[in-house]
Design a protein around this nucleic acid. Structure first.
Lengths: 222, 222
DNA sequence: GTCTATAGAACGATAGAC
DNA sequence: GTCTATCGTTCTATAGAC
């Protein structure tokens, strides 16, 4: 059930955050109980409320600490790509790489690839809990604006609606495909391996870059 | 909070299924309580267990009744496209339309477009609950095999790994984008309208058809 | 089939000793 | 900061009257 045990010597607050990450990623917010978190963290039940005040605050803090560095890395890579393009339009592939690759980096811990982390990120986006959607929207909205600025410069022929729809499809394809990456193994009878993180991410970038070429389609009847 | 009231005269079992659909779509399995379902259905709390035996059985039955007709329609459209192509390779757009458009049809009830239904379908795929993933995999695996057969014939140049990865991306983009379609409105400041179901689905088909052109990408370092 | 009532377990949160 | 103990709530599920 548990993944890798949290090392001894880690203090209670940190143990709680790490345990919450695993449980929340596996069971979602409503399915996460403080009893399960404190058991996995091997700390007292009361310590969760002592350190964070509430279940909601614990999960929020966990999410914030995890998402913030990823977004920073995304902006760093985007900036790097901008300079590489000598401040002209950035190739679409490079923009998508800046968006996607930091997820791979964050999933690669010292104990090898941690696919459950991708599940965590995906779940945080599709959570039914209202407060979580609000926070995640806030996190993501700024980032989306910045990325959209570069995408717009790289696709001058597309309309605003084209661009936003395609970005919407790309974001959801990214989060869904990565968080559900175990399914592709079952579906393909093992032909595809989710553990090949680089292969997966490169394929995803290629798929989305192609998808982004789609513009307003002609009306279609089925 | 509630959507459209369930009409009078509907029998208890049906009322429960309809109410479960709304609540589950909005709050997920763990967040769905029989109290909320029976309250929305305006029936007695005990009736849920009387008619279905358990919360799990109720949600399963609701899902089964909803997903089965959609999959039938998908196969019907695929067959129609096959005949239209005179049993040669089907254009990729037509295959994707057969996969996607039935979701739009199912979301269009007599009371206009019901976007919460798309949320329900998306949620059923990303549910953390183990039993639900198992069932959904079963539902979907057969369908994926059939569709993959046609996709394979339409993309003879692609490797098996290419095809399965791209199908994986397409399925997740479809479910994620549709179930989270409200976000695109917020993100784009109203430029994109999720209520324009046809526009959304046509754009999605175009995006995914382009994405599918992507094959094994060259190794890439970031 | 539909109700009331409640069993029995799990939940988040907290009071208060150490 | 960490514990035990427990409060008050909510949950699924069921027993039993009608």
């Amino acid at each position: 059930m548990s993944t890798v045990a949290i090392p001894r010597g880690t203090d209670t607050k940190e143990r709680l955050l790490r345990a919450a990450e695993g449980i929340f990623g596996r069971h979602g917010y409503a399915g996460t109980t403080l009893r399960a978190v404190t058991a996995e963290a091997e700390v007292n039940l009361a310590s969760a409320n002592y350190h964070f005040g509430s279940k909601e605050a614990l999960v929020m803090e966990m999410l914030r600490q995890r998402v913030a560095p990823i977004n920073e890395e995304r902006l760093r890579l985007l900036d790097e790509a901008k300079r590489k393009a000598e401040f002209g339009p950035i190739p679409l592939e490079d923009i998508l790489e800046a968006l996607i690759m930091p997820l791979g980096g964050a999933a690669r811990g010292q104990d090898g690839t941690d696919l459950s982390f991708l599940q965590l990120v995906g779940r945080s986006f599709s959570e039914p809990a209202e407060f979580m959607r609000r926070v995640h929207d806030t996190f993501f909205r700024e980032l989306a604006e910045v990325f959209m600025g570069e995408i717009r410069r790289s696709c001058p022929q597309a309309t605003e609606a084209d661009l936003w729809w395609n970005l919407h499809f790309a974001i959801n394809a990214m989060l869904g495909s990565l968080s559900q990456c175990r399914r592709v193994e079952a579906m393909s009878n093992g032909i595809c391996e989710a553990a090949d993180l680089d292969g997966m991410l490169n394929r995803l970038v290629a798929f989305l870059a192609n998808g982004f070429q789609a513009n307003t389609p002609p009306s279609r009847t089925v």
